[in-house]
Amino acid sequence: MSKGKRDRSTKARQIVEHQRAAERRRTVTIWTSVAVVVVLFIAGLVGWNMMADQDDGKVTTPTAAVDDGTAFAVGSGPVTVDIYEDFMCPACNSFEQASSATLKQLVDAGKVTVRYHPVAILDRFSNGTEYSTRSAAASAAAAQEGKFTEYHEVLFANQPAEGSDGLSDEKLIELGKSVGLTSDTFADAVNNGSYRSWAAQATEKFSERNFTGTPTITVNGEQLETPSPEQLTQAVEKAAG
């Protein structure tokens, strides 16, 4: 075999090898891409199913709850004031401090029905103890015993700071005792988290109404721009006509 011929056959072999390698790369690229698409699709399906499953499960709704089981009403006036609050939310506490006297006045004068909606949107600010959910659930337990208003007040008066562990279940029960919630029923409900699923559902309904922050206050369905006693009074007077 001449040197020239050998060179040519080596070159031919190289070309074939090169083509084979390119072919292999193409096949691998196609199949790995298909695999990636399948994996991502399955991941999406898993998320979808988890979401669908969330809505299942039994929810114990306190018998006193109104407005689709999401709220506890005070007073019986013609104008409806809806107040959505997270017990962990400092702005809600400020609103309570500033407006509770005004609200009480309006209720006592028979002008308004106040519907308190506890929601739990700030669980991420209590180091994993989910204080927002626990406190909202405890307030439902208090409502079941007919003491929502008192308990609501004492929870805000003892509000833990955002980023702390929140109040322990023990402390939640103790605060209950201080407002006359001395029954085992209340303590058991707090310890067992009996109304946690209720809190999750109430929060879900809050989101469904397209509210994103707390406090959210509506007067006959009209949302207050800035929650203050002045705006509240104005809105109530306007709604009363």
Binding site: W48, M51, T203, E204, S207, N210, T212, G213
Partner: peptide, 30 residues
């Protein structure tokens, strides 16, 4: 916490809450 994830998407106010729920649930898995 997929419910919180849905609320996070909803907070952008770019879609209905039902759509945000789907996006919020699928996104972490993706």
């Amino acid at each position: 916490d997929l419910a919180a994830s849905a609320r996070a998407v909803n907070a952008y106010q770019l879609m209905s809450y039902d759509a945000a729920k789907v996006v919020g649930a699928i996104q972490p898995f993706l």
